[in-house]
Simulated scan of single mutants.
Amino acid sequence: MIKRIALFAIVVATILAGGFFFVERQAEQYVNQPLQLKTSTEIFTLHNGRSFQRVLHDLAQAELINTSKIEKVLRFLHPELTHLKAGTYQLEADMTLKQAIQLFQEGKEHQFSITFVEGSTFQDWLEVFKNTPYLKHQIEHLNEKQIADKLGLSHDKLEGLFLAETYHYTYGTSDLDILQRASLRLKKMLDRYWTERQEDLPLESPYDALILASIIEKETAIDSERNRVASVFINRLNKRMRLQTDPTVIYGMGDKYDGNIRKRDLRNPTPYNTYTILGLPPTPIAMIGEASIVAALNPEKSPYLYFVASGKGGHVFSKTLTEHNRAVRAYLKQLRSQ
């Protein structure tokens, strides 16, 4: 009788061991299945409060993994896999389910990026924000003054008050958060270069430096020219000559600008038309990068008062109006030959 009981126990133990081995093997196959991405990468959001089994269900609903009955007992077999952190993650095509779970455990959320180009306007930024995914939109229905108030900025006109560069963010970041970072980055940079600026510049405040930097930004994208372009404007300001720079005219025209500047536009006295006003326009005319701030506060020492496009990508700089008119004629001839 005892032998029979012992034999029965052995049989039961064998069956249980075999069953456990089978279940464990099924579990291993399940967690090591490759993700079924439709592209090389896909974004997956693990929402706060989701249970481990619900996350597996969400992955299956997104057709990223195959379902299996084993998922119902997986948390008992492998409790070490169940501690997941909410967030938005980037899944890679060569990942397995287990690797995705490990990513969720580590909480390494995907860093999205948003890029603002030097010389773009605040209206351009609003369009970029509007078309950027995984970003919380908080400024969409606010005017510039309301946005300025939320950011604690003293200027109601926001042009030029944010540093143009690439910003990284995670899911749930707002457009207002990015503007705050861009504002602080610009202020920190501007304060530094204002302290280190050349002596005797005809600029009364850091805000004046931003205005000049924005004009430089619109006049040239060639790094080697920025300091020379800055010198022309500084020389003209020192001589109380009008700046006569087309980008300010264009900015003042607003929606009326159709790609051409006519003589009547140059004579139209808008607050930004530097053909009709003395000194700087009232605000920056574009968003600025670091290089233009440096140029505005550290211009080249030059005798130049004029410049015009060369027709070959750069500019020709002149000391006198006669030289400048000759360079203008050469530029027009270059255009006609093309």
Rank of each mutant, 00 (worst) to 15 (best):
V23N: 09
K136Y: 07
T245D: 14
P303V: 08
L7I: 13
I70T: 11
H78L: 10
R197S: 11
L158R: 11
E323P: 07
N268M: 08
Q198I: 04
V308L: 05
L35S: 04
I250H: 06
I250L: 08
V117H: 14
D177N: 00
L161V: 02
L161F: 00
G19I: 04
I288M: 10
A296L: 10
Q102I: 12
N325H: 06
I285Y: 14
I250M: 07
D223C: 13
E42M: 03
T248F: 08
P133R: 11
N298E: 04
R336Y: 14
P133W: 05
R264F: 08
I15K: 01
D191Q: 01
E217M: 13
I215T: 07
A60K: 14
K188T: 15
L84Y: 15
L142Q: 08
S302L: 04
S318P: 12
I65W: 03
Y304F: 15
T88S: 13
M189R: 05
S302H: 04
T67I: 10
L84G: 12
E204P: 10
L151G: 06
K150I: 06
P284H: 03
E290V: 03
Q334Y: 10
Q338Y: 03
N325G: 04
V73E: 00
I250R: 10
L280Y: 13
R197F: 06
N235S: 12
G252F: 04
R192E: 15
P247W: 04
T88C: 01
E159K: 11
N273W: 02
R75Q: 12
Q90R: 14
I43F: 00
F233M: 05
L84D: 13
I216E: 10
G19V: 01
H47R: 10
D223R: 14
L278V: 11
H324L: 09
I139R: 02
I43V: 03
I15W: 01
N235D: 13
R25K: 12
I261R: 06
L7N: 08
R4M: 04
Q102G: 10
I139H: 01
H83L: 14
S318E: 08
H168M: 06
D200T: 15
V249E: 10
D94P: 13
N32M: 09
Y89W: 12
L297S: 15
S214W: 10
D58P: 06
